[in-house]
Amino acid sequence: MGIGTALALAGAASAALFAGVGSAIGVGRGGQAAAGVVTEDPNKFSQVLILQLLPGTQGIYGLLIAFIALSRLGVMSGSPADLSVGTGLMYFFACAPMAFVGLVSAMQQAKASVASIGLVAKRPDQFGKSMIFPAMVETYAILALLVSILAINGIPS
C-alpha cells in the first residue's frame, strides 16, 4: 500500500473530520442558546430545537463525502486499491472543499442560529423567517458538497 492510498484516505477522513468538528461546535453553541430560551418558555422547545440542529448538516455532508470516497477507494469492501501519488492527491483535494467549507460554515451558521434563537425567544411568530438566516449560510456548504461530489466522481479509476 503506497502513499497515494494514504493521501486519498487522509482526504476522505478529513471531510468527515473537519465538517464533523464544525457541526459539533455549531450544534453545541446552538444548544446553549436554546436551553436558555427553554428555561424561560418550555413551549418553544420544538422551534429552538430546529434552529439548534441547522448547523448539524455539515457533519452529515462530511460523512457523505467520506463515504463516497471510501467506497470508491474500496476501503468499505476491505480491499483498498493501490493508488499512485497523483491519484491520491486528486482524492485529497477533491475532499478539501467539504472539509474546510464544512468546518467554517458550520461555525458561522451557528452564530446565525444563535441569533435566530434569540429572535424566536422574543417573537415566536417570526419562526419562518428566523429559519432562513442560518439556511443562507448553509448554501456555501451545499456548494462545497456539490464540488466535492463532482470532483470525486470525475477522478479516473
Binding site: 452529515i60 455532508y61 457523505l64 463515504f67 451545499i142 456548494l143 458538497l145
Partner: peptide, 18 residues
C-alpha cells in the same frame, strides 16, 4: 442554489446506504 435539491437528496440515499 437549486443544486441543494440534488445534494440533500443524495445525502438521504447515501446515508441510508451506509
Amino acid at each position: 442554489s437549486y443544486s441543494r435539491l440534488l445534494a440533500l437528496g443524495l445525502a438521504t440515499s447515501v446515508i441510508s446506504t451506509v
